[in-house]
Lab assay of single mutants.
Amino acid sequence: NMVHPNVICDGCNGPVVGTRYKCSVCPDYDLCSVCEGKGLHRGHTKLAFPSP
């Protein structure tokens, strides 16, 4: 899995490795796959980016 450079997960404050989930509503909100799997930020649609 690749690390998305200059992207920090807003759920756990860790690096985003593998798929990046970017909120389509909020201007700067990203989740890693673990936090997305936990259902964080469920109210907004997210775009999935498998690689940087």
Rank of each mutant, 00 (worst) to 15 (best):
H4T: 13
K22I: 06
D28T: 12
V3W: 06
V3I: 11
D10V: 14
D30E: 09
C12F: 00
K22F: 05
V3E: 11
G37R: 09
D30I: 10
V3C: 10
V17G: 10
G43W: 10
T19Q: 07
L47K: 14
V3A: 08
V17F: 08
L47C: 14
P5K: 07
I8V: 12
G37C: 08
S33D: 10
P50K: 12
C23P: 01
P50I: 05
N13H: 09
I8M: 14
G37P: 05
P52Q: 07
K38V: 05
P50A: 11
F49L: 14
V7N: 09
D28N: 15
Y21D: 02
L31G: 03
V34K: 10
G43E: 15
G37S: 11
F49E: 14
L47G: 09
D30C: 09
K46I: 14
H41D: 07
T45V: 10
D30W: 14
G37Y: 10
G39D: 08
C32E: 00
G39H: 08
C23H: 01
C12M: 00
C32Y: 00
G11N: 10
V3S: 13
S24N: 10
G43F: 09
V25H: 10
G43I: 11
M2V: 01
F49G: 10
Y21V: 02
A48F: 08
V7M: 10
H4A: 12
T19D: 12
S24L: 03
D28W: 03
D10W: 11
G11F: 05
Y29N: 03
N1R: 04
G37H: 12
R20I: 12
P5T: 02
G11L: 08
Y29T: 03
N13G: 04
Y21I: 05
G39P: 04
H44R: 02
L40A: 06
I8K: 15
G37E: 14
T45Q: 12
I8Q: 12
G11I: 05
L31V: 06
Y29L: 04
V25Q: 09
K38T: 06
K46M: 14
V34L: 13
G43H: 14
S24Q: 15
C26Y: 00
V34W: 04
G14R: 12
V17S: 14
L40C: 09
V16D: 03
G39A: 06
T19I: 09
D28G: 11
R42N: 14
L31Q: 06
G43M: 14
H41V: 02
N13V: 05
A48S: 15
G11S: 10
C23Q: 00
V34A: 10
F49R: 09
H44D: 03
C23L: 02
C23M: 02
D10F: 11
N6K: 15
C32V: 00
G14I: 07
L47M: 13
G43S: 11
L40Y: 08
R42I: 12
V17I: 15
D28I: 07
V7W: 08
V34M: 12
S33Y: 07
L40Q: 08
S33L: 09
G11T: 07
V34E: 13
T19S: 08
G18C: 03
P52N: 04
G43C: 12
V17D: 14
N13T: 09
N13Q: 14
R20S: 08
G37A: 13
F49Y: 10
N6D: 11
C35R: 01
S51H: 15
L47F: 05
G43T: 13
N13R: 14
P15A: 14
C35I: 00
C35V: 01
P27M: 08
M2S: 07
G39N: 07
I8E: 10
A48G: 09
Y29G: 01
R20G: 14
L40W: 09
G43K: 13
R20H: 07
C23A: 00
A48N: 07
V16L: 03
K46R: 09
C12D: 01
V17H: 13
V34D: 10
S24M: 06
Y21N: 03
S24E: 15
E36V: 04
L47Q: 15
G14A: 11
P15C: 07
G14T: 08
D10S: 15
H4G: 13
G11E: 11
D28H: 13
P52Y: 05
N6L: 07
G11V: 10
S51V: 11
K46S: 09
G11K: 10
H44G: 02
I8S: 14
V17R: 14
D28E: 13
I8T: 15
C23F: 01
D10I: 10
H4F: 13
D28F: 11
L40V: 09
P50D: 14
H44A: 02
G39R: 06
S51K: 08
H44T: 02
N6M: 09
P50F: 09
R20A: 12
H4S: 14
K46Y: 07
N1E: 13
S33A: 13
G11D: 05
G11A: 11
H41K: 03
D28C: 06
V34Y: 12
M2W: 00
P50S: 10
N6C: 07
H41P: 01
D30F: 15
T19F: 07
V25F: 07
F49V: 15
R42H: 13
T45W: 04
L40K: 14
K38I: 06
G14E: 10
V16W: 00
T19N: 09
C12W: 00
D30L: 11
L31C: 04
G43Y: 11
C23N: 02
F49K: 12
G18L: 04
T45E: 13
D10Q: 15
Y21M: 04
V7G: 08
C9A: 01
L47W: 08
C35H: 00
R42Y: 09
C9I: 01
A48Y: 10
P15R: 13
V17L: 11
C32R: 00
C32S: 01
P52W: 00
G43V: 14
H4W: 13
M2L: 03
P5V: 08
Y29H: 04
C26I: 02
N1A: 14
K46N: 14
G37V: 06
V7F: 03
V17W: 07
V17Y: 12
C23R: 02
P50E: 14
C35P: 01
G18H: 04
K46A: 07
H4L: 12
S51C: 14
E36L: 06
R42V: 14
V17Q: 14
K22T: 11
L47E: 15
C23K: 01
C35M: 00
D28Q: 10
L31T: 03
L47T: 15
D10C: 15
Y29R: 04
V17M: 13
T19K: 12
K22G: 05
D28P: 01
L40S: 07
G14Y: 05
G14H: 12
C35Y: 00
C9T: 01
H4P: 12
K38H: 05
H4R: 09
F49H: 14
N6H: 14
S24P: 03
C26K: 02
C12Q: 01
P50N: 15
K22R: 10
P5Y: 05
N1L: 06
P52I: 03
S51G: 12
C32H: 00
R42P: 15
I8L: 13
P15S: 09
P5Q: 12
P5E: 15
H41A: 03
T45G: 11
V17K: 14
V16M: 03
D28R: 11
G11W: 07
F49M: 15
C32P: 01
P50L: 07
V34N: 14
P15H: 06
